[in-house]
Amino acid sequence: MAEIRFAGYGGQGIIRSGIIVGRAASIYDDKFSTMSQSFGPEARGGACSSQLVVSESKVLYPYLTAAGILVAMSQAGYDKFEPELSEKGLLLYDEDLVKPKASRGNITPFAIPATRFAEQLGKKIVANVVILGFFTAITKVVTYESMKKAIPDSVPEKAIDLNLKAFERGYNFGLEVLKKQKEPQ
C-alpha cells in the first residue's frame, strides 16, 4: 500500500496530480486507489493538497495514516505536510520552490527543478506533470505505461502532447537521478 500527499498552492494542478496517479493506478494498473482533496479557501489560491491511497485490495480507510511519499510543490505545502511524512518516507520536491529542512529519520529526498523544466517546455502549468514523471520513475507506485494512458484522459485535448513531453522530461530526469545514486561515489 502507498500513501501519498501532493502539496502545493492552488492553480499548480495539485489535485489533478492526485487524479492522474489515482486513475493510472486503479484504471490502468488494476489496483485500488482513493483520492481525497482539500477544500475551502486553501483550494482557491492558497495552500492546497490532495491525498492518495493506492492499494492491492479495496481501500477501507480513505485518508492517510502515515504518508509514505510527499510530493511538495511549494514551501507552504512542504512546511505543512513534512511532519506527517513517515521516517522511512520519500520526499519529492521542486528544488526551486522548496528549501527542505535538514533531513530527519531515514527520509530520502529527491529534488527536481520541475517548474524550470516546464518553463523550458513552454508552459509553467505542466510543472505538476513533470514532477509526476519524476514521481513515476522514483517511486514506482504506478507504471510508466499506465501514466502514459492516464495523462491524455486527464488533460484538455490540445494540451496532451505538451503534457506527455513534460511527463517524459520528469521521468527521464528521475531515471538519471536513480542511476547516479547507484554509481559508486
Partner: peptide, 9 residues
C-alpha cells in the same frame, strides 16, 4: 462529505 468528495474508479 467523505464519500461525496472521494475520488475512485
Amino acid at each position: 462529505e467523505c464519500v461525496g468528495h472521494m475520488t475512485e474508479k
